[in-house]
């Protein structure tokens, strides 16, 4: 059985009822950030969740670490529901690394203090000296020298700081790391260092990753499996080595086309079509969420939400387009 099981998880955010809502006895509008998502991650593997901004990736990440509670559905890690009461050991088993390392660290604490805090809270070390030694060790794990312990976040570069947040997550010896855009705020050179560090750590420590990113190349490099999210739903999922070279969902393809080309000689793709004006207005709820922007949208797309169908072994796509046609049409997408 997979280490992480996400089973039909939906998360709605209910806005506060405004005065006008109250007067009209109306429930506040709900925003569905994550919509009926099911995914599994076996131990030791990396799942990359990709999607554009606002697609619900971070919400999924927060659900995974128990910072949010699912509106429906269930997330388990090693059989333990993340939304329920957790023992300290269970609590420690899943850690998060987020996008902005400056925000992720207490700016008034030294790096050493930030790293020591979880160690002492969980009594993973006995006494100050041992704490200090373990902090040095953690810094070393992420490739930082000992003297970083006495610095404050403001005095350290972004890449180094992100390594510190990784070190802090590792302090409690977790099995799973949820990485929410860990490299988004870093420049390219540093990005590569962090990505390879992450890959290295996974091997050394036998970690399982859920990597949330909109950077497909990062996902490609690290992931075993990929899930593509669009407006809270998984529209395509499968092994990284099949999804990236042969995407099945038009949205995935768009994402891949929009990706900046590493080779400056080759012009980059046209980018994602602007969602507005929609080619066809998304007529009411129901139907494929992507149809407004989809070059292949057809009448059937208005009817129902396309289910996630198996298109190849271990490869799923939520598109009604027949496989062959899809491929044929794909060639007509301007590039």
């Amino acid at each position: 059985m997979s280490l992480i099981v996400i089973d039909s998880v939906t998360k709605d955010f209910v806005a506060e009822r405004t005065v006008s809502d109250r007067l009209r006895r109306r429930a506040a509008p709900a925003l569905r950030a994550v919509d009926d998502v099911s995914l599994e991650v076996p131990a030791g593997q990396t799942l990359a969740v990709v999607g554009e901004s606002g697609s619900g990736k971070s919400t999924l990440a927060r659900l995974l670490v128990g910072l949010e509670t699912p509106t429906s559905g269930r997330i388990t890690v090693d059989g333990v529901a993340m939304s329920g009461p957790l023992t300290p050991a269970q609590r420690r088993s899943v850690q998060i690394v987020s996008q902005n390392p400056w925000s992720a660290l207490n700016r008034r604490r030294t790096i050493g203090q930030s790293l020591a805090l979880p160690l002492h809270a969980h009594r993973l070390v006995a006494g100050r000296a041992e704490g200090r030694a373990r902090v040095t060790e953690l810094l070393d794990t992420v490739g930082l020298r000992e003297e970083y312990a006495d610095r404050r976040p403001a005095d350290v570069s972004g890449g180094e700081l992100q390594r510190v947040t990784i070190a802090r997550a590792l302090a409690v010896e977790p099995r799973v790391l949820v990485l929410d855009e860990p490299t988004a705020s870093l420049d390219n050179r540093v990005k590569a260092v962090v990505v390879s560090l992450l890959a290295d750590l996974r091997e050394r420590l036998g970690l399982t990753y859920v990597l949330v990113t909109h950077e497909l190349d990062v996902a490609h490099y690290v992931a075993d499996r990929t899930a593509v999210m669009y407006r809270g739903r998984i529209v395509e999922s499968g092994a990284a080595e099949t999804v990236f070279p042969s995407p099945r969902h038009p949205y995935t393809r768009m994402l891949l086309d929009a990706r900046p080309q590493p080779d400056p000689g080759v012009p980059s793709g046209p980018g994602l079509p602007d969602p507005t004006p929609a080619r066809r207005p998304a007529a009411g709820p129901g139907g494929c969420a992507f149809r407004g922007r989809c070059p292949h949208a057809m009448a059937a797309c208005d009817e129902a939400v396309p289910p996630l169908a198996t298109v190849a072994p271990g490869h799923h796509s939520a598109c009604l387009l027949p496989a062959g046609e899809d491929a044929a049409l794909a060639s007509r997408v301007p590039s």
Partner: peptide, 23 residues
């Protein structure tokens, strides 16, 4: 983000508030 991170790290609410307090 550090508040969430500390909660995920399993720090009791009291300790988390303590960290917030310094700011």
């Amino acid at each position: 983000d550090y508040v969430g991170a500390l909660r995920v790290l399993g720090l009791p609410r009291r300790r988390v508030l303590g960290e917030v307090l310094v700011n």
